[in-house]
Design a protein around this nucleic acid. Structure first.
Lengths: 243, 243
DNA sequence: ACGGTAGGTGTACGGCGTACACTTGTCAAG
DNA sequence: CTTGACAAGTGTACGCCGTACACCTACCGT
């Protein structure tokens, strides 16, 4: 009786708790620092204990992705396909921003767990419900690609640690010289980088409105889909036209 | 005199040879099986020897990506922006298909080596040369995202090993049952999957024309860019419109 | 009272990237 | 011809990783 009681008495650990701890650990330390050993430590347990609840690390990752999918809103009812898709993608994006590890996790996975299939199926259903042909829907799903998950390849990405503190470190006059060098070597990049809201006299590192960029591309695709849909586009026709 | 001669006498190893060997090793064994130790073995050398030519594995990867970029055609001269971009993206895509590790390498990198910046700058230049405003070019570069590299998230991906041999293994009557189950659970996915060239009576695993899908999305974006360009689109205007 | 079983443990193996101290081969200056 | 600096390759070792496998232990229904 006295045995199973108090003090350090742990709740006995289960898949749910493993996954949730893994998620918040990854939130905290990042994808590449998430190891079975670190996770075990976090759970107050020896590494091998985890393997009683997930088969291996891959399955853990799959489970984490499933958890993430659970945070994405279901399709909004009573909306046309376009707003429904838009809302849902933006919901996915919010989930991804809460869990920075997710992009890498998704990219690393081969993607065929039930949770993922469920999500994709439901996503596909939004186009079909909007009257899209199966054919067009198929191609549209490909085209929307990673954006379905709420991310794009962030090509320009933040330069590592621009978090407020650093700017004082560089003499600030050397910065002008550096910018000049940059402009000489990468004229086009500098041209577009400095043009962003260019009236606020920004410098290169100014960063851009990620959210705006994301929606820009998303809407471009959605508008494109819409146009094709209205025109009764079909892939067989398109392939014929191509010749 | 006799000392430096024959037999196993190796050419003395240099950055170039390290990178090239790394590239072909990765081609052969895949991204995640490329290790410093395996590479050293391939070079007939002890692991640490490599570190005399690259600082660490990250730098090796950066070098490999640089090598890959070298395989991408420069912008075709005497073309309008649209065909120039299209041709170049398709060239990048071909390079990526020759080197299956490259997608993962690019995704894993934080992307700011000179080689990458050169490529991005030159890419950017194609839009600017086409008369795009710096503003529109900026957003367009974001939108084209990973496609600049010649890949999209391959969401549906080949199911591991469908390489001709396997189909006989499954009793072929059980396959119908499985398909039925699939259709019950993922009706939409099955709907679009079976619709591809649906007159050839295909099944789910039939696979789709990757190249077509890629170009589909690419052209959708390019057409969108073109339309915005013609309309004198500007982001400040767009942001105002949004309210 | 007892045997099965689910959950947690401990040890160990083979891999990884790479720090650091070393030998060796080469070549220019004394 | 000697020397000694320097670049290139070596060997050993450390701390991390995922996880196989044998073990213990506490609980359960019989």
């Amino acid at each position: 009786m006295t045995q199973q009681l108090e003090a350090t008495a742990r709740t006995p650990l289960n898949r749910e708790r493993v996954l949730q701890t893994a998620v918040s650990l990854a939130d905290a330390v990042g994808f590449e620092s998430l190891s079975m050993r670190r996770l075990a430590e976090e759970l107050g347990v020896v590494p091998m204990a985890i393997y009683k609840h997930v088969a291996n690390k891959d399955e853990l990752l799959d489970g984490m992705v499933a958890t993430l999918i659970g945070e994405i809103d279901p399709p909004a009812p009573g909306q046309d396909w376009k707003s429904a898709v838009r809302l849902r993608v933006l919901s996915a994006r919010r989930a991804l921003q809460r869990h920075p590890w997710a992009r890498q996790a998704i990219e690393s996975r081969t993607n065929k767990t039930p949770a993922v299939l469920d999500y994709m199926d439901s996503f596909t259903g939004m186009f079909l419900a909007g009257g899209f042909s199966a054919d067009l829907t198929h191609h549209v799903m490909h085209a929307i690609g990673g954006r379905m998950w709420g991310f794009t390849q962030e090509l320009f990405d933040a330069p590592a640690g621009p978090t407020a503190a650093s700017p004082a470190e560089i003499p600030a006059e050397a910065r002008a010289a550096m910018l000049e060098q940059m402009a000489a070597r990468y004229p086009n990049i500098v041209a577009i980088a400095t043009s962003v809201d260019h009236d606020e006299g920004s410098v290169v590192g100014h960063g851009c409105d990620d959210q705006f960029e994301f929606e820009f591309a998303l809407d471009l695709l959605l508008d494109g889909f819409e146009r094709l849909h209205e025109q009764g586009w079909s892939s067989t026709q398109a392939k014929l036209d191509r010749t």
